[in-house]
Amino acid sequence: MAFFLRLILLISFLVYLGAFSWGLYSSDEEYKQIFIKMLTSAAGLSIIVAFFALWLTLENFLRKTNLNISGKVEVFSISELNKKESYDSGVSSFQLNNYKDKTVIIYKVFLKIEKGHFIKLLDVRKKPILLKAYDTHFHDFKQPLFYNLANTPKRISRIDLTKSSLYLDTNEGRYKVRKAIKHWNPSANKILIPLTTDCNYELGKRFIVTDHNWLNRDYYIEFDQEDIEISGITISLKEINDSKELESLLNLKFSAISRFSVSEPSKDVANEYPQWKDSTFL
């Protein structure tokens, strides 16, 4: 309906311009001047403005009529081997996008698959989804073991769910969700994938000395630091090459009951992520 209303309005505008252009082209010079004055007059311009105003009015009207919802479905991938003992295939998540200036009430969500069957994804009649104007709804699921069809157990591992369609039971009846824009990815050799960690390795420090005799008090040693003072004793770092040397020196320097441990952040990261030390600059 929306397409035809837009088409009718566009054809009317083109007919108006065509008729005016034909009259201007086929008339004598005297009448051409009259046509030009008509077009450039307030009345002529107001007709053109009226067409644009009518178009905007139509667009505002269409935004509040019918439904325009797009959807995107993600599915679980299952192993090709030993399917009999694995989880079944199913929808891992779906997303709905409302492109209308009105709220849609959704009671049920189905996925239509081969042979006219439907997978019931959601039944929320007691607490419907309120998909507000220009809003998005996302829902994820656990992977199913199998399905029940009229109390008969069924598996659908051989069906390609990516080619299926979402159907909604809404306050305006059944609605088939139109396909959303497909996923986009740049070339694989152009994608940088971040590798993050929950640990704070203090990579800006050369060593971290922990004095276990003082409730695990930490001393941070900078890369250009030449000595460290602990309990009034100054320890030179000029001949220290790694954390093991410093740890041995500290435990030797202080009494036998003193206990120190030394970590080297850069080596901790290298041990945890061996590829980190092999990384190069982009």
Results as ranks from 00 to 15, higher is better:
1 M>R: 03
2 A>F: 01
8 I>E: 04
9 L>P: 06
13 F>V: 12
17 L>S: 00
23 G>A: 09
23 G>R: 10
26 S>Y: 07
26 S>G: 00
31 Y>W: 06
33 Q>E: 12
45 L>R: 05
50 A>R: 02
52 F>L: 13
55 W>F: 13
56 L>G: 04
57 T>S: 13
57 T>W: 08
58 L>H: 05
61 F>L: 13
70 S>N: 14
77 S>P: 04
86 S>K: 03
88 D>T: 04
88 D>P: 02
89 S>E: 14
95 Q>T: 15
95 Q>F: 01
96 L>A: 05
96 L>G: 08
96 L>N: 00
97 N>S: 15
98 N>A: 06
99 Y>A: 02
102 K>V: 08
104 V>H: 05
113 I>E: 09
116 G>Y: 10
117 H>M: 11
118 F>E: 11
120 K>Q: 12
120 K>M: 12
122 L>P: 05
130 L>M: 04
134 Y>N: 13
136 T>I: 11
143 Q>H: 07
145 L>Y: 09
146 F>I: 01
148 N>C: 01
149 L>M: 11
150 A>V: 09
153 P>Y: 06
161 L>F: 01
161 L>P: 04
164 S>Y: 05
169 D>M: 12
170 T>K: 11
171 N>T: 02
176 K>G: 03
181 I>S: 14
181 I>W: 02
183 H>M: 05
186 P>R: 08
187 S>C: 07
188 A>Y: 09
188 A>Q: 15
189 N>W: 08
194 P>D: 11
197 T>Q: 01
198 D>T: 01
200 N>G: 01
202 E>H: 09
203 L>R: 14
205 K>G: 02
207 F>K: 12
208 I>S: 09
213 N>L: 10
214 W>T: 15
217 R>K: 15
222 E>Y: 06
224 D>P: 01
229 E>N: 14
230 I>G: 10
230 I>W: 05
232 G>C: 14
232 G>A: 11
234 T>N: 07
237 L>G: 01
243 S>C: 11
248 S>G: 00
257 I>N: 13
258 S>Y: 11
270 A>E: 02
272 E>H: 13
272 E>Y: 12
272 E>S: 15
280 T>P: 01
